[in-house]
Computed example of a mutant assay.
Amino acid sequence: MKSNKKLGSYPGILITVSLTVALFLIGFCGWVAFSSKELIKYIKQNIEVQAYLDRNLSESKIDSIYQVIASFPEIEKNGDKSLISFISSKTAAENFLAETNESYEEILGDNPFRDAFNLKVKEELLTDGDLAILKQKIEAVSGVYEADYAKDFVNGITENANKAYLILSAIVLIFLVATILLINNTIKLALYSQRFIIRTMQLVGATNAFIQKPFISKGLLQGFIAGVIASALILITQQLALKQVDGLSLIQNQQMMIYVIIIMLILGPTIGLVSTFQSINKYLNVDLDDLY
């Protein structure tokens, strides 16, 4: 009992704290990455294509145009209903007046706005190339004056999203490698004080598996505790951020958050196990002269 207690008396708290900090940084980057992905998705879901109509069209002609555009496979649907909204020229003028407090009638006299359809497009087609093709298809419909979309905004979203994913992936990878190196060195230093005890156990006939068992058990336990603490810190950070940042809740995906927690709970014990196993094997196979 005394030897077992002494065997595990290396600085486990230091290892646990180091692993907790490293896992928290990895989890935080993962949360930011998933939040960024949801932000891009949210923005894309609110990008619309506008189809401006010719003037003085009858209601039946407008309905006919609606039916044609609604049949396009690029248009997003909610069940069987295409996500298309109609904005009359009068409504557009009223919205302009409400936003700017400027009356077009004093300058132009006539209403310069046109009747228009706002179209929701499927997210996977929100690229400049696909939208350009859809624009041509819409403009080919009889009664459509022009189709338009925020071209520069779409291009900016696509380019920045790809850059953000690459940068965040690189950061997570760097933290992961740094974590493994940090914990390896910490455990090696911790086991350094136990090297003579390990050699003594070998001399009295203890098998490698018997010697490894208490160290590996501690490594697993420390990794699990670090994963739990890091997960709790991530959840606390998320809740504090939700209270401080307006609208952040709109881009939170709880399923993705569960994945982050599961990864940390698996990664902690795994790093603890692998690092401890590698470190303990070093002292099991070292020559007696090298112990000094």
Score class of each variant (00 low, 15 high):
Asn111Asp: 13
Thr91Trp: 07
Phe153Ser: 13
Asn208Phe: 08
Lys122Val: 05
Thr200Trp: 02
Gly156Phe: 06
Ser193Leu: 07
Phe96Gly: 04
Ile180Val: 15
Ala206Asn: 05
Ser193Glu: 11
Ile133Tyr: 08
Glu105Asp: 10
Leu168His: 08
Ala147Ile: 04
Thr207Pro: 06
Thr179Tyr: 04
Tyr165Arg: 09
Thr179Ile: 02
Thr91Gln: 15
Val204Asp: 02
Phe153Tyr: 14
Glu139Trp: 04
Thr100Ala: 09
Ile171Ala: 13
Ala116Cys: 05
Ala178Gly: 13
Ala98Tyr: 11
Asn185Phe: 10
Lys90Gln: 15
Asn184Gln: 05
Pro112Lys: 00
Ala147Gln: 04
Lys188Arg: 15
Ala140Glu: 12
Ala98Asp: 15
Leu131Pro: 10
Pro112Cys: 00
Phe210Trp: 03
Asn95Tyr: 05
Ser103Ala: 11
Ser103Cys: 03
Asn160Gln: 11
Leu108Ile: 12
Ile187Ala: 00
Asn155Glu: 15
Met201Asn: 11
Phe153Cys: 03
Asp115Asn: 15
Ala206Thr: 01
Asn155Leu: 11
Phe113Ala: 03
Phe175Ser: 00
Gly129Asp: 14
Ile107Asn: 06
Ser103Met: 02
Glu124Lys: 10
Ile180Ser: 10
Asp130Ala: 15
Glu106Asn: 11
Leu189Phe: 13
Leu108Gln: 09
Leu166Gly: 07
Ile174Gln: 01
Asn95Glu: 15
Asn208Trp: 10
Glu99Arg: 13
Phe153His: 02
Phe210Lys: 07
Ala132Phe: 12
Lys135Pro: 05
Ala206Tyr: 07
Thr100Pro: 02
Lys135Tyr: 09
